[in-house]
Amino acid sequence: MFKKKCLIIEDSEIAIVTLSMQLEKLSMYDISVARNYNQAKSCLSNDTYDLIFLDIKLHESSGLDLVSEFPKLPPVIVTSSNVEFAIDTYEINSVMDFIKKPVTEDRLIKAIDKALNRQKTSNSIVENNFVFIKTGRHVMKFDFEKLDYINAYGIYSKIYSDNKSTIVNESIATLEEALPNQIFRRVHKSYIINIKKVTGYDHKNIFINEVVIPIGFSYKKNVSEFIQFI
């Protein structure tokens, strides 16, 4: 799986370890670290990155000076324990977000969403072939090719994948907006299906192996748009 390249520019070892561990949970990035201004300059001069986490205070230097020195940076997420520095980042085009330390998992996901201009929900990150969704207090990865269907579960949803169900912290309406339409379609107020997993259908139901999923009256047109390609 192709991973994006992420550079952490940070002089606090605790902050480096914390942020690195949170990013490693997402399994989306090859992580590099620069611990001071000169190391950061070297990294930015000799390599390219998809995302940068930038501490404002780098010993006696300002991380924001790097932004001025390298005007064509990828999306930057600024981190600092001092929220007063946030105002200094508002007019910098490459800075997508500001996070107050310590960085929490929820806030990290939202900042990545914003920085990389992904389809956003409050508890998920959508990529080309998979999605990370918050389940309880944890974040789980769901591969599109293994995800069979989604069932509404009050303000939450149940995702059926690999012959098991997982309750996630997203409503079915939110997941409908976030997931790619060419793979996932809403066929009922309570169901989203993976089109590629459909094994049969009639005028009332869609079948995914032995599972029978009803077609809602208001979703018949939605179903007819993709059924001819099954």
Rank of each mutant, 00 (worst) to 15 (best):
I16C: 11
V168T: 12
E210Q: 13
K114F: 09
N93E: 15
P71S: 11
K5G: 07
E127N: 12
N128E: 15
I92D: 05
I155P: 07
Y90E: 04
T89M: 11
K25R: 12
I195H: 03
I193R: 01
S12H: 12
V33M: 12
F226T: 04
L51R: 05
L108Y: 07
V33N: 07
V212N: 12
F2C: 03
V78E: 07
N194H: 11
V187M: 01
T135K: 03
T174R: 11
N181W: 03
T199H: 02
S62G: 00
V76L: 02
K189R: 15
A115S: 14
I77F: 00
I56C: 09
F217E: 15
S45K: 10
H59D: 15
L54K: 00
N129W: 10
D202R: 06
I16G: 09
I167P: 14
P214L: 06
Y201L: 10
R118E: 11
I99Y: 08
K146H: 11
T48M: 09
K141W: 04
L116S: 05
I213Q: 09
D65K: 07
D55A: 03
R137N: 14
T135V: 10
I193D: 03
F184Q: 00
D97N: 06
D162E: 15
Y90N: 06
D148H: 01
N194S: 07
V126D: 06
I227Y: 05
I9C: 05
F217R: 10
L175T: 09
L73I: 10
K164S: 15
V78N: 03
V212Y: 00
Q22L: 15
I183M: 14
F130H: 14
F53S: 00
T166H: 15
I9H: 06
Q39R: 07
